[in-house]
Design a binder for these strands. Structure first.
Lengths: 250, 250
DNA sequence: TCAAAATCGATCAAAATATATCAAAAACAA
DNA sequence: TTGTTTTTGATATATTTTGATCGATTTTGA
């Protein structure tokens, strides 16, 4: 049996059972213990698994929540400043859409006690929203495991019931010629749908997102007002030429 | 059994019952008492649990979560027994609806690693479902503050996209002549909608729900199979006359 | 309160597993 | 083919994990 085949088997077993014993792999592959050990060492170096006494276990799985928290902590000050500005744009009685994401999440404290209705596709936003007693509707859809965002046909179908005064979207990339982009095509589709349903649209993109490009296109720049903390005039001007830009200081 | 597997089991049990006894873990894992003690020490150092005399208890419990968990702890053994029976009825490849509720919540551990698709209107079920890697769709709708259930037009509208092999519903009252009832008319409407979309329907109702009556009518008895832990023949017979009843021992 | 029962922590030897090394086997190139 | 390199399996020597034991401590129930 070839080495890549063995590696494939090991990773398959891991995928399936989370952990795998060396003895089981010996039986499964017919290779010797030494060989399996070498395989496991290699795969560990390649960061594909973690060796444990007696076998190996897969890397992620647990502490999924943590990674979301970690992500939320990146550029936190910038995100809060942008979120605060975004929240200040909301008028009494507005019905708004809040995108799943860490920047939009930071808007929630500023929504407390205000007269508005929120629709979101972000399950992670929900707890915070209900704690702040904001009347909330959730879109339906498939639960994306990594981000707990609701996507797919169910999400776009649910959205058709609503119309929004304003929507607030997070993105991964903002680019002068390629516009707003995000890695997941399904998420991009949801954002596109929201754009068509909103009177006004705002994209929340901190400076680290500017001039970045991601796989799936959402819309061109002029389809939304950009809220950012970038304040270098040179880096800003390509955007200001094509769309409304609100700059916050952080 | 590998160390990570044992740790996983310990944390699962904790998640489920809030506390766990060393003896139970010895039986569950087949490892010795010493080993379990060492595991608990390690997990305590990793800040994943708190050791107590005779076992361990879980740490985190946000205020909101607490009240939900308290409710979930009521009649826990009965609920687990009913949930286990309910889960055993699911066939490979089934697409099922899981109602929001504490009894249906207990079904989730039994769904792990199985080939099925779940649709639910219970936001509280979501975390557990994704942790158990069950592909999950959420209905849309208004988020009911107290229970985090999705209700209203958004929920019923979302549901129309789906068809279910089986649905598993929780109720507040089961009554020989008034059938299944629940306090919230909006929730009742969701349950009714689900019933019309399911090939087979099951209601999970522990003995405390029998002969109880609540404000909103969902359906008459014969519209669903009742799964209960009531085993007094006299109390059971009115139900057995009118519908299928599965009795579990708890 | 006290004594019995249960549980705990520390220790130790046995079992299982890990690492390093080396020669045989296989794959490869000329 | 022959010589070289890579992979493999075996072996010997560490290391880690494990389960049992025992005295100490805590809980339980009268």
């Amino acid at each position: 049996m070839l080495t890549p085949t063995r590696h494939e088997i090991i990773l398959e077993q891991l995928e399936r059972y989370q952990t795998v014993k060396i003895q089981d792999l010996v039986n499964e592959t017919g290779a010797s213990e030494s060989t399996i050990r070498r395989d496991l060492s290699q795969l560990e170096n390649a960061n594909k698994l973690k060796r444990v006494h007696g076998g190996a276990s897969c890397l992620h799985q647990t502490s999924e929540e943590l990674s979301i928290r970690e992500k939320a902590a990146q550029n936190l000050n910038e995100k809060v400043a942008i979120a605060k500005e975004a929240a200040s744009l909301i008028r009494d009685g507005d019905c708004i859409f809040l995108d799943a994401g860490t920047t939009t999440y930071q808007m929630i404290p500023y929504l407390k006690g205000r007269n508005l209705t929120v629709v979101t596709n972000g399950v992670t936003l929900l707890e915070e929203l209900t704690e702040n007693q904001v009347p909330t509707y959730l879109t339906g859809g498939f639960v994306k495991h990594k981000t707990r965002a609701l996507i797919g046909r169910g999400a776009t179908h649910s959205l058709q019931q609503y119309r929004f005064d304003k929507c607030f979207l997070g993105v991964n990339g903002v680019h002068p010629s390629h516009g707003y982009t995000t890695p997941d095509p399904e998420e991009a589709l949801v954002k596109q749908t929201v754009l068509t349903l909103s009177q006004e649209a705002f994209v929340l993109g901190d400076a680290s997102k500017l001039n970045e490009l991601s796989f799936s296109s959402i819309a061109s720049l002029q389809n939304a007002t950009l809220i950012t903390n970038e304040n270098d005039p040179e880096r800003l001007s390509p955007y200001q030429e094509k769309t409304n830009v609100k700059v916050v200081s952080s």
